[in-house]
């Protein structure tokens, strides 16, 4: 008898395999990052076609094969469909997914990362925050969640308001992070601070970031 597991997560990567199948990478709350095969997901009309797209968030029913997970069903609660119509938003979302792919590990508890990603994607869709601010908050928080944030003492770039904002990001859980906007001058300070911190922390060039930099 096959053992099924139901995991809450989001599709962070999807690639075509063979003629009709797909391999998806999921960021899940319970088991961290994992790869699963969705058989027949590229057949027209297949029920796994939509749930295996990047940004699909919901519950995934998987069974454990000998060497891999196989996706059998999915109940998607949010497809983040609006990101598809927003060119810049799609790139920001893509960058967030790439960062999660970089940080997440298999069989880790990635609840914090998943919450942060979900809230950040929702914030991208909201008119209340600029995409630049969402990016700054996401970058800083993802570094904090993974325990690599050096603190604000070394960042001489920060004024009083920006330092307060960084402290707020540090001490607030992901579900309450996106509650208020900042002034343009504070955002600029934050952006420069993020650049320094990211350069120091990440040892990889992100494909979507190159395009984002040109867009901004």
């Amino acid at each position: 008898m096959q053992d099924f597991v139901v995991l809450t997560g989001i599709v962070i990567k999807s690639e075509a395999i063979g003629e009709y199948d797909r391999r998806v990478v999921l960021l899940t709350k319970e088991r961290g990052k994992l790869a699963a095969f969705a058989r027949g997901a590229r057949r027209p009309g297949n029920r796994l076609m939509a749930p295996t797209n990047p940004f699909s968030f919901g519950q995934f029913r998987l069974f454990e094969g000998r060497t891999s997970y196989n996706l059998s069903e999915a109940e998607i609660s949010n497809y983040f469909e609006e990101l598809r119509a927003d060119f810049a938003g799609a790139y920001y979302g893509m960058y967030f997914l790439e960062l999660c792919d970089y940080y997440a590990r298999e069989n880790n508890d990635e609840t914090g990362m998943l919450k942060l990603l979900y809230q950040s994607l929702r914030a991208l869709l909201s008119d209340r925050f600029s995409n630049r601010l969402v990016r700054c908050i996401f970058e800083l928080k993802v570094i904090m969640v993974n325990g690599e944030f050096p603190g604000i003492k070394g960042g001489g770039l920060l004024g009083e308001s920006a330092a307060y904002t960084v402290t707020y990001i540090m001490n607030t859980p992901p579900e309450r992070l996106f509650s208020s906007d900042v002034k343009p001058e504070v955002l600029e300070e934050l952006r420069l601070f993020c650049q320094v911190i990211c350069k120091r922390t990440f040892d990889k060039d992100f494909k979507s970031l190159e395009i984002l930099e040109n867009l901004e």
């Binding site: 690639e15 075509a16 590229r42 990047p54 893509m94 494909k207």
Partner: peptide, 14 residues
């Protein structure tokens, strides 16, 4: 149009 969208998500090309 999932195939086109997935291709874009993989390549990132405009």
């Amino acid at each position: 149009y999932e195939d086109e969208w997935n291709r874009f998500m993989q390549t990132g090309q405009i």
